[in-house]
Design a protein around this nucleic acid. Structure first.
Lengths: 149, 149
DNA sequence: ATATTTAAAGATAGTTTTGTCTTTTATTTT
DNA sequence: AAAATAAAAGACAAAACTATCTTTAAATAT
């Protein structure tokens, strides 16, 4: 559904929200390992997300790292998509028409508009912090199981 | 949601189902134009779909082209996804975990399983031929509006 | 038989996405 | 002030996706 960039972003932010705070900043190394993502690639993504401190914040140097304030933890996960320009995925036509609306629908439009708003709503109403609890309880996971060779 | 390949494939098949038949085969040129897709790229895709005549059929030479039988027109659009290996998109975890299930869920799993089955059902219960009628009536469209420069 | 038509197949190239590695900058600690 | 730490930034490379062009093979029509 989303790009790897967005998948890593969602996982990383959820991890930071759960484990980090202004007092306990998390290194990119810890984060990348915790979500089982390539470290430097994840770093680039977090840079984007920390631009203007919209979702996450960062501090350089010893005891530096990434963290979130309670205010940003309460934002909907849609915010993450928006910062990456990936919220458009939730508006796209299934058949890829650049205009697809009630006025000029694709043949699948009428079926899809039954579902698409639910998807949008999921990302709008689910807050970042809502996703952290089950992880701490060991009831949800944010790390791919490593593939055996 | 899907790759360009899949988008073109869905559009092309719907077009062929609506306009073509064993008696009236359609050229790749006509199809590509009708769905506003690059001709040779579309050709490759149709080759995949016509392998073993699973969804579409083709005949070379004069008066040749692509067509579908009534039997294949009645197949669910899921068949198209399956032939391209894109049906897995409908099973994927939103966060990209390679294992994400009730047993080992990602933190978004519980929300997403409210929606994902509806998506699957849409592709399973919608038949190719179901999507052709509105196009012929001018009530649905299968061609991107060409962008002005 | 030959020429024509049309899809199949192959080669290649551009673009985007994903990933790695190195250098730089900011911050803190000693 | 100097050394150490950690993110920021830049360069680069591999892979996947999208796209174009050319050649080949099959079928039909002349």
């Amino acid at each position: 559904m989303f790009t790897k960039t967005t998948e890593y972003a969602l996982r990383a932010v959820i991890y930071i929200a759960g484990k980090g705070s202004e007092e306990k900043k998390l290194s990119i190394q810890e984060i990348a390992h915790a979500i089982n993502a390539p470290q430097h690639f994840t770093a680039k993504i977090l840079q984007q997300l920390s631009a203007e401190n919209k979702v996450i914040s960062s501090v350089r140097g010893p005891n530096g790292g990434f963290f979130m304030t309670m205010k940003t933890k309460k934002k909907p996960i849609m915010e993450i998509l928006k910062l990456l320009g990936e919220d458009v995925v939730l508006d796209k036509c299934v058949l890829g028409l650049n205009e697809c609306s009630g006025k000029r629908p694709c043949p699948l439009h009428v079926q899809y508009i039954q579902i698409r708003p639910q998807l949008r709503e999921m990302f709008k109403s689910t807050k970042i912090i809502d996703l952290t609890n089950d992880i701490e309880l060991g009831k949800a996971f944010i790390r791919s199981v490593s593939k055996k060779k």
